[in-house]
Simulated scan of single mutants.
Amino acid sequence: MRPESAPTTPKGPPPPEIHLFEPSGYAGVFQHACRLGELLGRSGRRVVLHTGHEHETVRLDGVELCPCSWWPRHRDGGARRSAAIAGRYVTRTLPHLHSAVPPGAVLHVEGIAAAGALTLLALGVARLRGRTAVYSPHDTFSRRGRVDGALLRLALRVPHALIVYSQADVEVLRRRGLHARRSPLVQLVPHASKEQRLAWRAAWGAGPDTSVVLFAGCIRPEKRLDVLIESARHWPANRRLAVVGEDRGGWARCAELARTYGVDVAARVDFLDLPEFAAAISAADLVVLPYDKASQSGVLAVARQLGTPTAAANVGGLRELASQTFAPGDPHDLNRAIDAQLASGTAPDPSLDENQAVTVHLLAYGQPA
């Protein structure tokens, strides 16, 4: 009998290291970077995720976590907090990144938390110092005014490659004369147990015959929770509105609107760690995204992988993942979409080609897939 041959050691230099940079350490972009890191790590490359010092607790396979970014999760402080973040970024995080990321390695900047000037610094220094600079903006627009928007548009022209997560963003950048690769939006999606789902439905006061319509994620003015509250004025008695997510300046007006209209909202206005957030999405009958503007949505990606139907405003890349779409800002058309989806009883196809995501990223990095 022929003996088994010993495993051979690959010849040649190891593939270049991949360093992902998501500075905040929490919410959808961080959770995307975590899953992307796991998938890239399976290819045998060294993968490091540089992130916030107060990052969410995660257990990742094949990814080194480096909490080198000072990014406090509390929201108070206003301009002083922003100035402190920027100061430590320039004096500590940026020097660390460009000593920790060796020449020839990839530095992939993820997300909008470090948009504008900070993103421009990270990408510019990386490119000047011989790294492969890659940028995924996650939003191709800025929420911080004209100056930041101009800096973001400039930052989009600095890296060697751009990766986005919707065809809508590919088209937006093409109209600006930029080429971007499109990847599926991979996310960390923990399994929700039956007990977790029942706990959420009990907290919402939802019986077995109640349909829960959920708004999930940051409550910002442009995410238009008010449109969903307007639509809830005309719901049948067996339909329940629930809200989970952190207030980013949109909740006070919406809560007052709900009181004015007599709409009962089961709300938990707070940041939820991923397992609890995913369980809430899994427990809902429908997740609604009534946004005015969007590139894509981690909420939609998570809901799809959990098998929860969705209805989203027909803007940006939302239409590419939603079960139903409706005219933005129109509560009557939103009600049509809600009625149609709840009547259909269909669940979205949860499949996602994670291998395609790896291939797209490695090609953008200039590496063999």
Rank of each mutant, 00 (worst) to 15 (best):
R2D: 14
R2M: 13
P3V: 11
A6R: 15
K11I: 11
P13K: 14
P14T: 10
E17G: 14
L20G: 09
S24C: 14
L36D: 03
E38P: 07
S43A: 11
R46A: 13
L49I: 10
H50P: 02
D61H: 13
E64Y: 03
W71N: 11
P72F: 06
D76T: 13
A83G: 11
A83Y: 08
A86K: 09
T93M: 12
H98F: 12
H98P: 03
S99C: 06
A113I: 00
T119R: 15
L123D: 00
G124I: 09
R127S: 10
V134E: 04
P137E: 00
F141K: 09
R143G: 06
L152T: 14
L154R: 13
A155D: 04
R157Q: 13
R157G: 13
S166Q: 03
V172E: 15
L173W: 10
R174T: 13
A180H: 09
R181H: 12
R181E: 13
R181M: 10
V186A: 12
P190C: 09
A192P: 02
R197A: 07
R197F: 00
L198D: 08
W200F: 05
C218W: 07
I219D: 00
E222I: 07
E230T: 14
S231P: 08
H234C: 13
R239G: 03
R240M: 05
V243N: 03
R248I: 01
G249F: 09
L257G: 03
T260H: 14
T260F: 08
R268W: 05
F271W: 15
P275Q: 10
F277P: 06
A279E: 03
S295K: 07
S297E: 09
T308M: 05
A312V: 02
A313C: 08
R319A: 15
E320A: 02
G329L: 01
G329Y: 01
H332P: 00
H332I: 11
I338N: 02
Q341C: 15
P348N: 01
S351I: 02
L352Q: 12
E354M: 13
E354Q: 14
Q356M: 11
Q356K: 14
A357H: 10
V358G: 05
Y365H: 11
Q367R: 10
